[in-house]
Simulated assay, not measured.
Amino acid sequence: MDVLADVLSATKIGGTVTARVHAAGPWGIEFPHLPSAVFHHVSRGSCWLRLPGAGPLPLTAGDLVLLPAGTGHVMAGDPTGPTVRFEDVTRAQRSGPGTPIDFPGPGPRTSLVCGGYRFDTHASHPLLTLPPVLLLRADPSARRHDLTETLRMLTAELADPAPGSQTITDRLVDVLFVHVLRQWEASRDAPDRGAGWWAALRDAEVAAAISLIHEGPGRAWTVDALAREVGVSRATLSRRFTRLVGEPPLAYLTRWRLEIAARRLRDTKDSVTRIANSVGYTSEFAFSRAFTRHRGTPPSRYRATHSAPGAGRG
């Protein structure tokens, strides 16, 4: 069971948003807070990332920065100075697919590839508990070959769009996001890798228990049953699972069931009762109560406000 793929599938909504920026100083773009994991790749030149409450961060060619929570920020040619809002720039330039956002000026030129990977804003999976900024510095070694190649293909597709380009860019951004997570995890110091979601996936028994939950979310799991399946004691599984994942096994089971239910409410026309049964609830009332506690809104209201266009067709 590919748990990472399963989590990303459950928590992602809609397609992706991508743009190219070509700028020469002075320039500055203010990006609003977005329900997305926002990334910027500096393909040429250099620039600065400015975040509220933090010092400006210099970026150079080859660097990639990911803001997992879509925090409002500024990309600019210098660490201070005026900015224009991203939506105002795109409106003024009437940018179409493949058309770069252009800032002409006398200063050094910088090129960016920007994108957003849209999440369900109510999702609370531990995987999404990431640092506010993930920075991957340019690395000419083979360690970043997959990431570099994905960025190359994405940049080329955006520069020369053709029929089907939206599908290709959506898939490439999906792939890019996974490569960024892998590279970030590989680059962390050993002490930082001792706990957390990624450490859980490296622990054989805890990873096996997570896989069992993902493979059979509707099963009436107990901690004893999970422990027997993975070959450790109940106490050992509970202790290691809680330390690495951040919550006990059955709390994670409940969270995952409700993430799946939210996806099905968004993407299908299955009845609430059918969805409840598929994730292990024998009572629609119990499911609705748990879903409301988790999401802050009843299943029927969540569906009405979050259903994807054409959900349940076919």
Rank of each mutant, 00 (worst) to 15 (best):
R91S: 14
G70C: 06
V84E: 08
A61D: 00
F103C: 03
R94Q: 13
T99G: 03
H73Y: 10
T83S: 10
G77T: 04
D102Q: 12
G96F: 06
D78Y: 00
H73W: 04
S95W: 00
V65G: 10
D78L: 05
E87A: 15
F86S: 09
A92L: 14
L64G: 03
L66Y: 01
D88R: 14
T90Q: 13
T60L: 00
T99R: 04
T99A: 15
G72N: 10
M75H: 13
A92I: 01
Q93S: 11
T83F: 05
R94K: 14
P68C: 08
G96Y: 04
A61V: 02
G98A: 14
I101F: 02
V84M: 09
G107L: 04
A61T: 08
T60W: 00
D63Y: 04
G98Y: 14
E87T: 14
D78G: 15
P100T: 12
G62M: 13
G107D: 06
G81E: 02
T99Y: 01
Q93G: 10
A92P: 00
V89Y: 01
M75L: 15
T90M: 13
T60V: 14
T99N: 10
P82N: 06
G77W: 01
P97G: 05
T80M: 00
T99D: 15
P97E: 06
S95L: 14
G70D: 09
P82T: 10
G105T: 05
R94D: 09
G77L: 03
G107S: 10
G105F: 09
G72Y: 07
D102I: 15
T83M: 03
I101R: 05
P100Q: 11
V84S: 04
D88N: 14
D78K: 06
G96E: 12
D102N: 05
P100H: 13
G81K: 07
P97F: 03
T80N: 02
T60I: 04
P68D: 07
M75D: 03
G107N: 08
T60Q: 11
L67G: 03
V74E: 09
Q93C: 10
R85A: 15
F86E: 11
T80A: 13
F103T: 02
R85W: 02
H73C: 11
A76P: 06
M75F: 12
G81D: 02
T90Y: 01
G107C: 09
T60G: 12
G81R: 03
T80L: 07
A69Y: 11
P97W: 07
